[in-house]
Amino acid sequence: MTTLSPSTSTSTPAGVSAQVDPRGLRFAAALTSLVLAAALLSVEPAREIALVLTAAQAVVFAIGAFLGVRHSPYGRFFGRVVRPRLAAPTELEDARPPQFAQAVGLAFATVALVGLALDLPVLALVALALALVAALLNAAVGFCLGCEMYLLVRRVAAPAA
């Protein structure tokens, strides 16, 4: 059985260099990809559905960004249903990079929501597509696009000497 049961791992206080199962991150990214793809496909034919799906994904991103990825619904589902069926993880990952990436995802989902609410379908499509690219990369090859952007953002944000 796993050495870290879901209950002990979720009781770790957020921010204290918490560790997460990388397979859970990939699983959550795959679910995120499905939801974003469904939202993308419904922008034109059924904007209300796209709005509901995008809003739901934005809430998931927000929980992951503010409370930690283990507390997001996808992370909880992985911990309760998927991980008990898998072997113990061979390695754990720092929870901070994916948590930052959830905040980047939230930013894109928010832009998509604005686009849907203000009847700007192109804005919504572009924002959803970019979020989907990031989620697909994370799910398929474990590449965290949001994390890559961190240093670039810091470079631009900090005043030049």
Binding site: A37, L40, L41, S42, V43, E44, P45, P121, L125, L128, A129, L130, L132, V133, L136
Partner: peptide
């Protein structure tokens, strides 16, 4: 258009 954007992504 959603299908094309999805494929593009």
């Amino acid at each position: 258009i959603g299908v094309w954007v999805l494929l593009g992504a």
